[in-house]
């Protein structure tokens, strides 16, 4: 059953393939609603589902895209491991044919491994600079993900066999990550679009991760 779920999600993610930057194309219409499915290597294989809503801001002559999604690691399909994101994205400036888009979001993550169960929350801030045409876009992106606090409760395995005095509690500023990469999106036909992003990632203190890159594929369908 688990294998069927994984394969179905993979199929959805890869066939529908687009992303979360749908709003920066013209294909999530103002005041529209969309559902998206994603497949990620970020940092491990994960799949997600989300909703997006485009809200016209008349005073700014812009649309604000609000989104919310949940991702689960594909090989850990249990609710102990998850990532919830809510974000707002808006086009800030246009300089000739180049546009600058900003995305600010909050995240909540959970994990449960051999040595601890943890929950962390933080912020994600990203800037896209690129060309956003009619039905397609390509942009460079820079992102900073900052975990503000993490609650860690150590397991009996760790305390009994490794370190009995490990401290449980709220840890401040335990993680941070920079991402640099590119995004691209394409509208196939009315309501359905594809998006992909990929890039390099490093810790906030410029140390290497086990998986030093990220890849996302996503598809959105607009209602």
């Amino acid at each position: 059953m688990k294998r069927i779920i994984i394969l179905t999600l993979l199929l959805l993610g890869t066939v529908t393939a687009s992303l979360c930057a749908e709003e920066v194309t013209n294909n999530l219409s103002s005041d529209a609603f969309g559902i998206y499915v994603s497949f990620d290597v970020d940092p491990m294989f994960a799949t997600g589902i989300g909703v997006a809503k485009s809200i016209p801001l008349d005073f700014m002559e812009r649309d604000l895209l609000l989104s919310a999604d949940i991702s689960l690691p594909i090989f850990l399909l249990d609710l102990k491991h998850y990532e919830l994101n809510i974000a707002g994205r808006i086009r800030l400036f246009d300089i000739g044919i180049i546009s600058i888009v900003n995305r600010l979001g909050l995240f909540l993550m959970g994990t449960d491994n051999d040595i601890y169960a943890g929950t962390t929350f933080g912020i994600k801030e990203s800037i896209l600079i690129g060309y956003f045409g009619d039905g397609w876009f390509v942009a460079a992106e820079a992102e900073y993900d900052k975990s503000l606090m993490a609650y860690i409760a150590h397991s009996d395995l760790y305390k009994d066999n490794v370190y009995a005095d490990a401290v449980d509690g709220w840890y401040i500023s335990p993680a941070g990550r920079f991402k640099l990469g590119i995004q691209g999106g394409l509208t196939l036909f009315q309501g359905l679009s594809l998006n992909a992003r990929a890039g390099y990632t490093i810790t906030e203190r410029f140390n290497d991760y086990t998986v030093p890159f990220y890849i996302n594929f996503c598809t959105m369908y607009q209602f």
Binding site: P73, F75, L76, Y171, A175, R177, Y209
Partner: peptide, 20 residues
């Protein structure tokens, strides 16, 4: 194999405690 639970746990946890 990359599907091993402990490997996924291990990599997923890098967003909890950065390897710094």
């Amino acid at each position: 194999p990359l599907s091993e639970e402990w490997i996924n746990d291990w990599v997923w946890s890098e967003d909890f405690i950065s390897p710094d």
